[in-house]
Design a protein around this nucleic acid. Sequence first.
RNA 1: GCCCGAGUGGCGGAAUUGGUAGACGCCCGGGACUUAAAAUCCCGUGGGUUUCGACCCGUGCCGGUUCGAGUCCGGCCUCGGGCACCA
Length: 805
Amino acid sequence: MSRYDFSSIEKKWRDHWQANPIQDENSDKPTHYCLDMFPYPSGEGLHVGHWRGYVLSDVLSRYKILQGYHVLHPMGWDAFGLPAENHAIEHGIHPAVNTAENIRTIKRQLKEIGAVYDWDREINTTDPAYYKWTQWIFVQMFKKGLAYEKDMPLNWCPKCKTVLANEEALGGECERCKSGVTKKMLRQWMLKITAYADRLLADLENLDWPEKVKKMQADWIGKSYGAELDFEVENSDQKIRVFTTRPDTLYGATFMVMAPEHPLVARLVSAEQAEAVKDYVQRAASRSSVDRMSDKEKTGVFLGCYAINPLDRDMKMPIWISDYVLADYGTGAIMCVPAHDERDFEFAKKFDLYIRQVIIAEGEDANKPLEEVYTNDGLMINSGRFNGMNNRQALEEISQEAEKMGIGKQTTNFKLRDWVFSRQRYWGEPIPIIHCPTCGIVPVPEDQLPVLLPDVESYLPTDTGESPLAAVTEWVNTTCPTCGIAAKRETNTMPTWAGSSWYFLRYADPHNDEQLAGSEALKKWLPVDYYVGGVEHAVLHLLYARFYTKFLYDIGAVEFEEPFVKLFNQGMITRHGRKMSKSIGNGISPDDIISQYGCDALRLYELFVGPPAMDSDWDDSGIEGVFRYLTRTRKLFNQYKDNTIEATPEMTRLRHLFIKDISQRLDNLTMNTVVSGFMEHTSTLTDLAKKAGGIDAETMDALTIMLAPFAPHLAEELWQMRGNKDTVFANEWPKYDESQIKSDTLNLAIQVNGRLRGQLTVDANASKEDVLSQAKTELAKWLDGMQIVKEIYVPGKIVNIVVKQ
RNA sequence: GCCCGAGUGGCGGAAUUGGUAGACGCCCGGGACUUAAAAUCCCGUGGGUUUCGACCCGUGCCGGUUCGAGUCCGGCCUCGGGCACCA
């Protein structure tokens, strides 16, 4: 038997499904929405690493179809973004042209995977009919005060020449080009995602998502509980407000540090220190965040003035500025407790500031000098009437005390910052805003949406912080929709995340031009039941999409608060241990694999390569194994398709075991072991068939149906080979009966003192005494001359005889 | 520094959650078929000792619990990932 002719089989069924879809669009079955994170249509096309998630979601979709669901499994394009724009800059070709070309390639590739994508629902974020609604959402946010303009120091990527959101500038590096990010003072559009911080955090709890992703989001939102406290400044009527999570350490606050950008710095600085402070502030402003973070040692300058510790008014706290205090977290100023905070300790050591210990480990000598920072819990010392109290309790009581004194209140703080939403680039949705000299900021009226992205002469970004759109004067100059006088359009565009923050809604009703999606369609399909994609979007796309959904819920546009019920992150496929990419030259094109082995084999290997949630290394010869399996299965059906016999007891038992193993493993998403299961059980079936001279119809049916989600082309072929006229997907997933799996005999391991000494086959109904006496006969040579201490029998598993000399 | 993962044959990985470690596959070796090769099929394949019946040792390291530990507990080591001055 030679290798099976996959190419004609696969072509035949692809064409057949195109003409005869396996699902009825008007079905009234219960619905299931299985979604892939839609791709950016990169010029590199897809490599086999991308396919891992797509195969997984396709298998799950087909499984759901066989379980009687009407499944929505759509695909589309997240097509705004820098690569297309950079390509345009280099070649002078409009990004839309290049993007369309890339989409054609990837769409062809996706069709060859044999996926059940519903191409009638294809969406493209750069389509004006789509981004009309992206802009509409922005206008709604503006109306609710959630989109606002602000001057602030922002992450600026000098290479991409645009501002970046905090989420795009992790570790001070541009998410796209890895350049060091600098700060630039610019007037930018912001989205008030912080207004949703509490809900975004609280609702994580109920999501069926990987714990890792939930934790990453929770950390990113970063809620902390503490108090805001006001400190008087000596010889001044100014007060400095700080945020602290440790009010219990208030007696140990011996100095204070403010961010260099803090508005009070200029007012408080003494004449003697003015020069030094000015230098420091300027230097801090000019340094990139990478620079600032790479500092090994703390830096700072004394302001020349003192704050007063409210609980110990004799304690004069020198006020410093330092860039280790962040201007945009808390109040931009901190009380420093060097004895109990590592950073404050380091700062105090560097500048020789007073350290006062206020918490001590239980049982420790209070007079022993503090040698290193103590951050654990303990008992209060040097803290007036709180001495001897547990510090956790002191935290409560000192907070209350501060509140009573009118100098503080309990509060919470978030690490999450508002979302910098404008980009100084061409290839994005224009922000639908008009600047009018008399009316100010006016949103484009909804009936005038979309604001079309105009053509430009040059796509080059500028250094001025202005988008290339600013040069298109005939587009920029418009009239105010409110008062009608000459006005100018906003020239910034939206970040690429804008379109992807709500696309999953659009698939439900992709051609609606009245609403972003009709409520009937939304009710039918949403929220997404199963979302499959890479972990790299843990705090970007997934957080933004949750925010958008909550906002749309608040304005009544959708009826659910969380977009994705269940999330699965597939692992990366590497080659020689490295991520596949064109620049490294280790990418493997699915096109080549398909022409050599067919897409069913590729699908199976994508699953067999390793546990779906873990990274796996692509092995060129590994696919041989699954290909051989498909060949053997084809051969088996060729041989026995007409030899249907009565099921032998062994065959019946195998069928139930086969169904159980595949079903359970599939439900657990351990796809690699599903493939193992197919191989193992099909091999057993082959042996049984040889012995019996045929296979029963029910077993052949079950195998074919179970194979269908994994190798749909071959399964459909096998189904047809046996004379069936309908599609294999019209069947129901086969069921198993546990009682049919039980065998008449049990194979037991027998041990002496926990060491394996043999095997025993016993009747399944044998009594404990019976089994033990058989085992002892078998173990005679090990028990001879020994005293039996204990006899253990775990039914169906093991016998262990414990002996001693 | 902090927070997650993960360490099992030559390799990718299984192990029904405390019960026969190494399923399934790759690679490799032997055989059948063939003029030959490819393809296919069968057998072998953790290490060691061996009187060929079997016996020792083996899941990163050290210790513990248990009749029994890859799995549970305590302490380390290594690798991968995430966050990183958030007061």
